[in-house]
Design a protein around this nucleic acid. Structure first.
Lengths: 233, 233
DNA sequence: CGGCATCCGGGAAGATACTG
DNA sequence: CAGTATCTTCCCGGATGCCG
């Protein structure tokens, strides 16, 4: 018996900024808690509900449901049914949703300079790989032409470094110069924490094969930015 | 008698994403409701508490207080006491806080392409001027060299167009080609709604003086972007 | 009047359990 | 596996009141 709310409003007053500014409107769309991280998780391709849950530790099922509903309603995410025999439902970004990538990158660059930023926390595959796309040092990458294969569990990615740029795509790799297998946290420790591959390998957290000199150079391509100036100018 | 919560935690469990990703950390800092709009309002210079309240219709005093406390704690905002006789307290961005400007711009560009975006809503001075910095058409601006003075109430700004770029700064203007006086909403209607200056002037909402041909050209410099593609590719 | 502190109602987020 | 149902907690928004 829930006869309380017969106030008959199809939309129960979604909380919005009544502001014509495009920034405010963007926050209406992806400003709710977890929303932008859901988008980040989909940047490299479609995922299933339980994958999203696993990669976003801390989100609860009902909140994830709500965010996906909202993102779908706004045209940022589409739900798609895979053909049999997979027959699973996946969520993927629309073209416009993909265009949110610069937002995630700019936020990442800015947030990494925070005095409170702690790079030693857990990180998801999408979070780490997205950081590679944005945090590489232009000087460090100059002159390198290499392909590095990364496997996290059953997902594979290729990091392609050439012409002073770093590109990351999901997909199987056949001809890569280095192959890294393990967890995002371990690779993050190697790249951002400076932990040697040998240490991680000895603990069974990471397996590196191929051109080891290149692998070690890869470790140095992503310098953490200087902490920002938080005192008044 | 509030003897309930003596659980003695200096930080009462602030809600955070426990994620090493810089994007997630940025959202820890400026992801709360209203936070980024407070930053937007400070992009053109310091403001007082009541100015912020007036320019952010819908925010309540206690929430503004909380956001300012948080932003100050994170090193994004500083509070400063003006010398007598003004003797007022103002809030201003730290250098790092200023660096959040690209975040606001990128969000604005993306949000303006939303199918749900409604440019006819109220807008603040900072919101409108910030949109000028990001939404100008490169083709439309090419070859123009002009200075346009804008006065909203007692605040003045200069829009400087040259070398294919648009810069906006707060400050008094002496030698500008055009002077526009009125409200942000009226100027927004002229620029984004295509409402002729004569109509707005007749209603006493906007006063334009100086090079009227340039003023009318200024109206055409900010084409609204095409709506985004929200169907799957 | 500016800059908060306090109290309250509603709603969003978090945790857990449960179902098709 | 992919969500719903339920309950609790916390945050947001509005009103009021204090205090320099």
């Amino acid at each position: 018996m829930k006869l309380e709310k017969i106030t008959d409003r199809t939309e129960p007053t979604r909380r919005r900024y009544d502001d014509a500014c495009g920034t405010a409107h963007a926050l209406d769309l992806i400003g709710e808690r977890w929303a932008l991280l859901v988008v980040r998780e989909l940047l490299f391709g479609p995922k299933r509900f339980s994958d999203l849950r696993a990669d976003l530790p801390g989100i609860s099922a009902n909140v994830l449901t709500q965010r996906l509903e909202g993102l779908e309603e706004f045209g940022i995410v589409t739900r798609r049914k895979l053909p049999p025999p997979a027959s699973a439902q996946v969520y993927e970004l629309t073209p416009w949703g993909m265009d949110a990538q610069p937002i995630i990158e700019v936020l990442g660059r800015w947030g990494a300079r925070s005095p409170h930023h702690d790079p030693t926390m857990p990180i998801s595959a999408a979070g780490l790989l997205s950081s590679f796309r944005t945090m590489y040092g232009h000087d460090q990458v100059k002159g390198i032409d290499a392909r590095i294969g990364v496997r996290f569990g059953r997902e594979s990615f290729v990091i392609h470094i050439s012409h002073g740029r770093v590109e990351v795509t999901r997909g199987e790799f056949d001809t890569t110069d280095v192959i890294i297998e393990g967890t995002p946290v371990a690779l993050g420790a190697a790249v951002y924490g400076g932990v040697p591959f040998e240490t991680l390998a000895a603990q069974g957290m990471l397996a590196v094969s191929g051109d080891m000199a290149l692998a070690r150079r890869f470790q140095t391509l992503f310098p953490l930015p200087a902490k920002a100036q938080t005192a008044s100018a």
